[in-house]
């Protein structure tokens, strides 16, 4: 019960202090919206929107979660308020889970901005929303953990932003969001399969466009493996780098 009180209040504090602040709400809406609009303008046909929707959703989650978490944690570390959390009688895993959950929820909301927008133009009634939500949650969890991993390595907010982009932009082009993995140069293909976003996007591609490389169950399993691995790395790195 005591752990639950601490967990809930860390999450509540993050949501109130960071995610519900007007600049972040506008970032969460404007960023996916502008990407959607940009793609709509360059792809006037309805088929284009359907094909682009999984990519837009994945990208919105990726950018929303990694940006927020990497920046907020680096900010708290710099002001040393994060020490309070490290010194609280809660386990590192509870702390990691509480810190990423805010970003995960933010990412989930971001993911559905393009969906709401696309619903005005195309019929989405055939989409399996249950699997879509699972895919979005898994992408949000792995992206948030990736954001946390970046934050652990960064000392300054600008460093966190730079490290984030170092991972995010190559990922966008390697995970089949805009360029199908089949069309990637042979040398880059193995890298694609090392990225969690590849499997998340593949699930979304499967449920929205009907085209996927792997089966949904396999993709979910791989995403869970990535989530567990990243969770372990985050815990280990916090202990090694922050408890010196």
């Amino acid at each position: 019960m005591q752990t639950l009180i601490a967990f809930w209040n860390i999450l509540k504090k993050d949501i109130e202090n960071y995610y519900l602040k007007p600049p972040n709400i506008s970032w969460g809406i404007i960023f996916p919206l502008s990407w959607t609009l940009m793609q709509l303008i360059r792809s006037p046909g309805n088929i284009g929107i359907v094909e682009l929707l999984p990519g837009l959703m994945s990208m919105s989650v990726l950018f929303g979660t990694t940006s927020m978490l990497a920046v907020t944690i680096t900010f708290e570390r710099k002001g040393r308020s994060f020490d309070r959390l490290l010194l609280a009688p809660i386990s590192i895993s509870t702390l990691v889970f509480a810190k990423i959950l805010g970003a995960v929820l933010f990412g989930i909301v971001n993911a559905f901005v393009p969906v709401v927008f696309a619903a005005f133009f195309i019929n989405l009634s055939g989409v399996n929303w249950g699997i879509t939500v699972i895919a979005v949650i898994l992408i949000a969890i792995t992206s948030a953990l990736l954001g946390l991993l970046i934050a652990i390595s960064a000392k300054e907010v600008f460093e966190a932003q730079t490290f984030s982009n170092f991972f995010r932009f190559p990922m966008l082009f390697l995970c089949g969001l805009f360029v199908p993995i089949a069309k990637l140069p042979v040398i880059l293909k193995p890298i694609s399969f090392l990225l969690p976003l590849t499997y998340g996007t593949d699930i979304l591609n499967g449920v929205i466009t009907g085209n996927s490389i792997f089966g949904t169950i396999f993709n979910i399993f791989i995403m869970l493996v990535f989530a567990a691995l990243l969770f372990y790395l985050c815990q280990r790195n916090i202990k090694e780098k922050w408890i010196l």
Partner: peptide, 10 residues
């Protein structure tokens, strides 16, 4: 209140 919550105080 937030600091107290970290120690599980209702």
């Amino acid at each position: 209140c937030f600091c107290a919550s970290l120690y599980g105080i209702p």
